[in-house]
Design a protein around this nucleic acid. Sequence first.
DNA 1: ATAAGGCTTCCAGTCACTGGAAGGTCAAGG
DNA 2: CCTTGACCTTCCAGTGACTGGAAGCCTTAT
Lengths: 130, 130
Amino acid sequence: MNIGEAAKQSGLPAKTIRYYEEISLVVPGRSGNGYRTYSPTDVHKLQFVQRARGLGFSVEDCRALLSLYEDDQRASADVKAIATEHLSEIEAKIAELKALHKTLKHLVDHCHGDDRPHCPIIDDLAGPDH
Amino acid sequence: MNIGEAAKQSGLPAKTIRYYEEISLVVPGRSGNGYRTYSPTDVHKLQFVQRARGLGFSVEDCRALLSLYEDDQRASADVKAIATEHLSEIEAKIAELKALHKTLKHLVDHCHGDDRPHCPIIDDLAGPDH
DNA sequence: ATAAGGCTTCCAGTCACTGGAAGGTCAAGG
DNA sequence: CCTTGACCTTCCAGTGACTGGAAGCCTTAT
């Protein structure tokens, strides 16, 4: 099938699918007219990548996961290692955002938000000496 | 003062400070030899931006906040609006990451992580029909 | 005179796309 | 047969916010 149909079936924009070919993530065949030709297997790979990206895996993680997906001799430990690493990155990010949120919420809650200039948010950003 | 000293006092890398000039965020003077010259006011601005970036504000938000910082006729409502908007972006991001975390943790917890190939993580990524 | 360290500009790379221009291909309708 | 429109191709540029590196100028100390 052509790229448009592969896009429909995988849920990915055609632009993105071309990009995945460029970085050798999912490489389709070509038909006589130069059009990309996606086999059902190619589409499965695209769907796989779409789901993995949706879970926040980097494209390089997707590449590793794809090769594990295609290797029926894989050790599930290898998959788990990638996912566990990603999980702790997510946890770190959540913790970071929660800390930002706490600080910012505190500042916002103490700002009157009226037409007067005094503002604890600006004061905080300006630093302790100003 | 030169860029190196401004970097020390603001906690920003010299590279970043040059970048801020390029995008007209904090524009220093120049001395006769072509070196950038940072006044104490410039350094305050750099510190301000450093703190705002640390709270996750975009550079464009920083530009807006800086101009409010410099405007002693500002309405605190304008500051609060930017901060509130940012706060809800943070909240959205946290919610998104928590959802990812939940899904991924569930998968990781159900993966044996041994040398056998069966893996619920791969199964999930492969989709329901495989 | 030279060496070290700081400064300059400019170019390229990061990540994962996304938009757009210019042009080739194909099937259907008049 | 011609045109229209949808689809496909490649290539180039831009996103955000830097970061690294090369080549070369300036200043200060020895």
